[in-house]
């Protein structure tokens, strides 16, 4: 069984575009088990059910908790707090720590380690950049704040050590892999054509982007180039 720890950001993107069925397909086809923390469930299900506009989205995710596509597991609170404190002290603005991430996001790392998986499904751009391009993130801050931002190198080193080999993928990557595995064919069975399949993939990527998955227009062009 392949475990993939999932963030609320990805579940929201997928649910908003009625694409959660991809997770069911990947579970059946590729033995994928999604794991979420109780905090993730609280955000994507419990909160959504209280907001009329997002209630249906919440039910879509709830279905996946009920059918076992997503299971709940607890993360390590001590490790989580350590990673959170470190992550939120990497960048300094006006001599103060620039706090950029939330406890629930950093809690995914110890859970990923616990499940023996190297991957977290996260659509949030700040978490992705913090892990994969911390210098690039510094430039974003400087551009937006119009002031110098310092990186505490020892904190950054400590963060890299705490995160280890755990890395991120996005819901858009799952769409791509589902396409490569032929799992999208059934969806357009009645009107199967190369163009329709391309439209399904491209439309899904645009939908995810518009729902908050942190992919750019260039990223979507790159997906099209790599997949077709």
């Amino acid at each position: 069984m392949r475990h993939l720890v999932v963030d609320s950001s990805s579940l929201i993107s997928l649910s908003s575009n009625c694409l959660l069925w991809l997770l069911d397909k990947l579970r059946a086809d590729a033995d994928l088990q999604l794991v979420a923390t109780p905090e993730v469930r609280a955000e994507v299900v419990d909160k959504a059910l209280k907001i009329e506009r997002f209630r249906l989205g919440g039910v879509r995710v709830l279905k996946r908790f009920c059918n076992g596509t997503i299971v709940i597991d607890e993360t390590d609170p001590v490790k989580t707090n350590k990673i959170l404190r470190t992550a939120n002290s990497v960048y300094k603005v006006k001599g103060r720590s620039y706090k950029i991430v939330h406890k629930a996001e950093m809690g995914l790392v110890p859970l990923a380690e616990k499940k023996g998986t190297g991957l977290m499904l996260v659509d949030e751009r700040i978490v992705d950049k913090l892990i994969n391009n911390p210098l690039g993130l510094k430039k974003v801050f400087e551009r937006r704040l119009h002031m110098k931002v310092e990186i505490d190198k020892s904190k950054l080193k400590e963060l890299k050590s705490l995160i280890g080999d755990v890395n991120t993928v996005k819901s858009s990557d799952l769409v791509a892999i589902a396409y490569e595995k032929g799992l999208l064919k059934e969806y357009v069975r009645e009107c199967a054509s190369k163009k329709t399949m391309k439209d399904l993939v491209s439309g899904s990527l645009w939908g995810l982007k518009k729902s908050g998955c942190s992919i750019s227009t260039n990223d979507i062009k790159e997906y099209n180039k790599l997949l077709f």
Partner: peptide
């Protein structure tokens, strides 16, 4: 874009 790197990662997974 870092799509290529991420796709390779997810394919390995």
């Amino acid at each position: 874009s870092n799509v290529k790197k991420r796709l390779e990662r997810v394919r390995r997974f």
